[in-house]
Design a protein around this nucleic acid. Sequence first.
DNA 1: GTAAGCCGTGAATCATTCA
DNA 2: GTGAATGATTCACGGCTTA
Lengths: 367, 367
Amino acid sequence: MNKTMTKGAAALPLNAILGGNCIEVMAGLPANSVDLIFADPPYNLQLKGQLHRPDNSKVDAVDDHWDQFDSFKVYDDFTRAWLREARRILKPNGSIWVIGSYHNIFRVGSALQDEGYWILNDVIWRKSNPMPNFRGKRYTNAHETMIWASKSEGAKYTFNYEALKALNEGIQMRSDWVLPICTGHERLKNENGDKAHPTQKPESLLHRILVGSTNPGDVVLDPFFGTGTTGAVAKMLGREFIGIEQEEAYREVAAKRIKAVRKFDREALQVSASKRAEPRVPFGQLVERGMLRPGEELFSMNQRHKAKVRADGTLVGGEVKGSIHQVGAALEGAPSCNGWTYWCFRRDGKTVPIDVLRQQIRAEMQA
Amino acid sequence: MNKTMTKGAAALPLNAILGGNCIEVMAGLPANSVDLIFADPPYNLQLKGQLHRPDNSKVDAVDDHWDQFDSFKVYDDFTRAWLREARRILKPNGSIWVIGSYHNIFRVGSALQDEGYWILNDVIWRKSNPMPNFRGKRYTNAHETMIWASKSEGAKYTFNYEALKALNEGIQMRSDWVLPICTGHERLKNENGDKAHPTQKPESLLHRILVGSTNPGDVVLDPFFGTGTTGAVAKMLGREFIGIEQEEAYREVAAKRIKAVRKFDREALQVSASKRAEPRVPFGQLVERGMLRPGEELFSMNQRHKAKVRADGTLVGGEVKGSIHQVGAALEGAPSCNGWTYWCFRRDGKTVPIDVLRQQIRAEMQA
DNA sequence: GTAAGCCGTGAATCATTCA
DNA sequence: GTGAATGATTCACGGCTTA
């Protein structure tokens, strides 16, 4: 299953789990090469010795001067360093997801903005079965926060709007997702029955992220791979993955897990497409093909206006001449108008939107 | 109703709305004197052009001068300055709530931590009726984030656990609160009918915060008072308030509003628990959660039709694609169809209606 | 009087292609 | 690169009008 893809000087190892420090490993990967990054970085701000400064010098675990400020400083430096490498690797139209809790997410969000990413949404994972607060001293910590950002302002990121709307039964997907935490058979265990990883994320979370922000064949990088939830879901959904994980024990669990995953069949991976992707049909073609006759009258959806079709596919309505969109906008006094859904024609006493004719043409094109 | 309370050198004006810049005004207030701070600072939205709805009406966006900042640096400096003064004024066991969106909340959260506050929870306000995303380019922005923090680590902050549990029908209050946005009669209007303030917060939000984090008689400071929601709810609940607001027009509206507020009598607090309809469960969630696999076949109740599940929660049955309801209706030649009771899946040789899976999810949600 | 339907609106970083 | 043309896009409520 492993492949490599050559991009510029360095090669991009696909469907592989790489060992080592994620900042160093990412530094060896080619620029502008991955479509999506999902990152679940360490939350704990008291990591001390486990963290490296951006220059890779180790933080002294027995430093007497260790205090809260140092702690934030080191965490911020670490965060900025990995986010910088991640951004270099990301394709110009790629996007990143980062998950965290109130311990670290504000540091991460600020760093994302400072490094030039452009935040698209913050999304709340609302846990349907969180651990209660036993001491009754605070609110039940029932959610985690995810940040979705593009590489830069104005980038054309992937967002499968229709697919997400379909996932949500026809209503556009919101920024709060109700999903259970990872338990039961999905939760990976060691031989001794302990959980294999303390913060294993549910596959449902990655499913929604990958369906929404990638297309089949896209490359997904996870720099804090853990037990490989990102890789497992990527494989199911026909995406390529690259995992980076420092701990050998986790790499082993992840490799075994992903090996057992079956990819969904091709038909199942097809997802509701956006109308923007449909081929463009000029209105004039309806006239050329005789679906509408020059001189025929069209009526606005609200029955308040009418216009006449001309041989070149423009309309005349009152004083206004122009495209179906221009005439519709002018008659309504609106800044814009979708002529396809605005205008109707009459056949056998019935009023039919002209969009029906466009759909006929599109159906023929596919056949 | 106004009183003053002398603390050290300066006097603490109670139940007053102070004009001027909040940083300067706070600088004139005595240290360690207020029990709670609620702050709804400018979000720094950075909006570009005009946004239209699909019906071509204009979205009345926040374009006020007070929300404009030249850069993150300027915004950060402003944030740190007011948070520093706020912390000085706060009693050692007091706490602070700050609300924001992804535009600013990460800056605010980092600043809180850097200034020495200790974050207790981040709390999500899940809006039951948010404005949709009109262009289909992102997730519906359906929530805002609040941060609750004590003055320092180890402080003995107020948390009325039992009162909140009672508010939540006997279940421990979680970090996500579902509340509607401020509309209807509660929304303050100018004489011309326009909204008096672009971002008025619902009283329900402040109600929960004040019940949870203060006791009767406590002093609540709001440095971005706006139209005085904090003051109004504080008065209802028998707390003292101090408001700071730069814009005279807002101060006038707030003063008038608060004057009309009556302190609660017990009876008014009794709110009939609204019977909620059963929560809607999108079919896609069964797929995301692995209860049904993409590619798996479903069978109609009458065994006459079958269809395949796709990754986005739509079905393919013969030539027909769409939701469980749409495909069921099409295959039956019926105008409509309840897909939940129409489709079945097979497990261990048995045929089971998919509605069983929905009931499982609902049971989890209620637990 | 009541029910059904239309209209307005809310903290929004909200387009893409072709000439 | 710039500007014009095409044409895609909304959920939950509250208030008011009409039947």
